[in-house]
Nucleic acid binder design. Sequence first.
DNA 1: CTGGATCCACCAGGATACTG
DNA 2: CAGTATCCTGGTGGATCCAG
Lengths: 136, 136
Amino acid sequence: MTTKTSAAVCIDGWSGDLDTCPVRQVLDRIGDRWSLLLLLTLKDAPHRFNALGRAIPDISRRMLAGTLKTLEADGLIWRSVEATTPPSVTYGLTARGLSLIMALGPLVEWAFAQAPAILADRRRAGGAVSGVAIAP
Amino acid sequence: MTTKTSAAVCIDGWSGDLDTCPVRQVLDRIGDRWSLLLLLTLKDAPHRFNALGRAIPDISRRMLAGTLKTLEADGLIWRSVEATTPPSVTYGLTARGLSLIMALGPLVEWAFAQAPAILADRRRAGGAVSGVAIAP
DNA sequence: CTGGATCCACCAGGATACTG
DNA sequence: CAGTATCCTGGTGGATCCAG
């Protein structure tokens, strides 16, 4: 979502730049490799920096720090620093972050319900499409 | 989502590979630059190939063709070929594609409702986080 | 322990040209 | 009209080293 665009459509009649469409911006954020995963990890309980790293073993420290910063800038998570030595930083969900997770609920259910069928279709891709058409 | 992972967490206690998590797969698909846009364009009515290109001016033919193929392989859209000369190919939503759009509804509403506040927070990023914390 | 800074590999995706 | 093939660039993100 870095390229300049000039499309006049997006969603629900959104008629501005593609890059200013709210839905696009949200998907750009949670659609990346780590944001959603972090949000869902923090849903259960606040975590410290390295605890998050352990909960998501394959994230690099760079992406962990960067993604957390972005999520905080968006007000989706909070960050609390204990000025001890060594320092201890804790992250947790904000109300806004929680509301996002709630809004994701139906999508999550859909994903779990449809995943097997989609994977089956994808496997025999190239053949006829199996989905029932809305229009002929 | 091309990198091999071995994480043991994902969503709702999903305990397989990150890459096999249904929600990750769905987000990988609709989170890309064009899929959701195409789905929403097709929601209103079926479109022909070049009509889609005109509805979304800044998509390249390569990405248009590629994204359509993937969406079809996942059974989210159907593809109908008229063997005329010149050929005419029409795309439209399947029932599954429509159900995905429905599942996206709450997220879309959330995005529109939260976008202004998020952008405001993002602008003065670096300052204190404004979201109300769930936990202190 | 919690990051920032830097270097670099990889690949998604745009431009262009060509085919059925 | 509806794609496919090829080349090439720029951004994403991993690895590594450094700092508070």
